[in-house]
Design a protein around this nucleic acid. Sequence first.
DNA 1: GTCTATATACGGATAGAC
DNA 2: GTCTATCCGTATATAGAC
Lengths: 201, 201
Amino acid sequence: MKKEYSDTEIKIKTAAKSLFLEKGYSATTTRDISKESDINLALLNYYFTSKKKLFEIIMLETFYDFISKMVEVYNDEKSTLEEKLRLTSSKYIDMIIVEPHLPTFVVNELKNNPSSILKILKGQIMESKLVDQYNDGVKKGIYKRIDPIHFVTNILSLIVFPFISSPIIIKMKKFSRKEFNEMMYERKKLIPEWILQMIKK
Amino acid sequence: MKKEYSDTEIKIKTAAKSLFLEKGYSATTTRDISKESDINLALLNYYFTSKKKLFEIIMLETFYDFISKMVEVYNDEKSTLEEKLRLTSSKYIDMIIVEPHLPTFVVNELKNNPSSILKILKGQIMESKLVDQYNDGVKKGIYKRIDPIHFVTNILSLIVFPFISSPIIIKMKKFSRKEFNEMMYERKKLIPEWILQMIKK
DNA sequence: GTCTATATACGGATAGAC
DNA sequence: GTCTATCCGTATATAGAC
């Protein structure tokens, strides 16, 4: 599965990933990539055939990371539902703070070319341990009987959407970037509590 | 403030809006617009000077609609906090079902050129009647003492994010578009309830 | 594998006729 | 106001020398 990449290929991929994430596919040019990675323009096609091919490789790798981080937590056998909520919030918030362009990148690709993401994402979420635990709680009468899709959706919504709308939040609250991040750290603790309140009877 | 537009201008603007919303700025060409609107390519520049200018006009109008719909509800003097939550959910969900590309469009512009949106958005949210009502509830001891930014953020997150991730939801649940919309109609009722549970002590 | 030079196409914009 | 024809810059991609 894992391919070995040469130094040059890695340089190209690193620069390309950074640019694609920041500006998107159409607005990124092969010249940008060659300049940013400090390699000759012709080498891009030599190694990756075309801009489109290069983009697809990067996109798939990025999504694979993105999703496996989630699936890993969701399917953990030992942790409780509550612990899974805390871990998910914490991991995702950290990940996006490190790579702030990730959400919009995913959002755009999801719109322009959903099939490539959806290929990666099998039944890994709705058949996860987390959803099992939620359904157990419903059976036991401690959680409300609502389609678990809402439960799963709400978790991601509360984590990811604030990043997407960060310029608005920063403006409204006159935040610095650092203060915004602190707000997100606060949410690591708040989101699991909120989700529990939402599902409990 | 409102400018009068000729038939030709309206045809151009309509086509341009549809394309910009669907494909974004970079991926939309002036030739696309001229074909879609069935006007001559040269007329685009004759009326709107440049692609960029045309885009800005459309973007501002779109955001203005988007935000004023929210502000209107948030500042209503008569309704309770709970009613405002219900109205917001309902209006926004309806609006996005009619114009499904709106969220990603806003998200992208927010990233690429935040200042133009932020100009429109003054203090209209954090100084709204809705936030006042929330703060009152805090003072009375019925709502938790949490920065209202979380409150405001959570409302929009739960409404908008599911649309953004609709391809994933549709795949996971094997939904048709119609079934997805029904899920969103369900949320009109659920979101206000959830938000209240989140803020209540 | 890496470079220069270039083929080829496309997109934004305008000149100028009607 | 509307059209055709075209300029010009830029983008992707490749040929071919080293």
